[in-house]
Amino acid sequence: MFKWCVLLRGINVGGNNIIPMKALVSMFEAMGCEQVKTYIQSGNVVLHHIQNDAAELTRLIQQKIAESFHCSPQILLLSVEQFSQALDNNPFVDAELKTVHWFFLAQQPTQVDFGTLENIKKPSESFQLLDSVFYLHAPEGIGRSKLVTKVEKCLAVPTTARNGNTVTKLMAMLE
C-alpha cells in the first residue's frame, strides 16, 4: 500500500461543492483505500491505496467524486515523500506556522510573472517558489494580502493552498 495526501480545492466553501467528510471517507473506502482520514472540512485527506501511479489514482478519484457528489474540484495528489519534501523545503522556518502558506502547484510553471508578484506584495511579505510549491510568508494574514489573489495568475498553473498548521498536521497524519 502507498500513502497519499489528497488535497481537494474549493470544496465546502460558500455553499459550493459540498462534500461531507464522512461521505468522502466512505467513497474512498469503497474505492479500496485504507486508513482514510480527513482533516477539517476543506478537502484534506490522507489514505493508503494499492495504486502507485498518481495520475491514474487522481483520475479515479475525480471520476468517483463526480459520480458521488456531482462536482469536480481540482485534485492534487502527493506522495508522502513529495509532501514531506514540501514541508522540509519551507524557506520560512523561523516564521510562525500560521503565517506561512504552501501553494501546491498542479504542475511545474513554465513562465512566472515575478515582477507582478514583487510589485503587489506588502513590505512585510516574502515569497519563494521551490520545485512545485510557492511559499508565502504573510505575517499580517492572507486576508489582507494582494499576493493571494494573484499567485495563480502569475504562476499560470492551478494551485491549492494550505497554511503551515494544516501542512504539519497532515504530515503527522501521514507518518
Rank of each mutant, 00 (worst) to 15 (best):
L97C: 07
N119S: 15
I65P: 00
L155N: 04
F127A: 00
N17K: 10
C154A: 12
L60Y: 04
M1T: 07
V80H: 10
V112I: 15
R144F: 02
G15A: 08
T99Q: 04
E29N: 11
N119V: 03
V112A: 09
N44V: 06
A66C: 05
L77Q: 05
V112P: 06
K22T: 12
G115A: 11
E56D: 06
V46E: 01
L24P: 07
V112Y: 11
N89K: 12
I18K: 12
V46W: 03
Q85H: 14
S72C: 09
S72Y: 00
H49C: 04
K98I: 10
R59A: 10
E34G: 01
L78S: 00
V6C: 15
L47G: 04
K146T: 02
C5S: 09
P109V: 10
K22I: 08
T149A: 15
Y39E: 11
K37N: 14
T116F: 02
S68W: 02
Y39I: 11
T38P: 03
D131H: 02
P123H: 11
E29Q: 15
S79K: 08
N17D: 06
Q74F: 07
I40V: 15
H49N: 10
S126A: 14
P20Y: 09
A172F: 08
D53C: 12
M173C: 07
L60T: 09
N165S: 13
F69K: 10
V25Y: 04
E152F: 08
A106F: 05
F92T: 11
L8V: 09
L155E: 03
L57V: 04
S145M: 09
S68Q: 11
A55E: 15
H48N: 15
I11E: 06
S72N: 12
L147K: 06
M21I: 08
Q128C: 11
D113Q: 12
L57P: 00
L130Q: 13
L78V: 04
L117I: 05
F69D: 10
D88R: 11
K122C: 02
I142K: 02
F83W: 05
I18N: 04
G14D: 07
N52D: 15
N52H: 13
D53W: 07
V36K: 01
H49R: 05
V100P: 02
V46T: 14
Q63R: 13
S132P: 01
T38K: 00
I40M: 07
V80D: 13
E81D: 14
P158K: 14
F127N: 00
G164I: 01
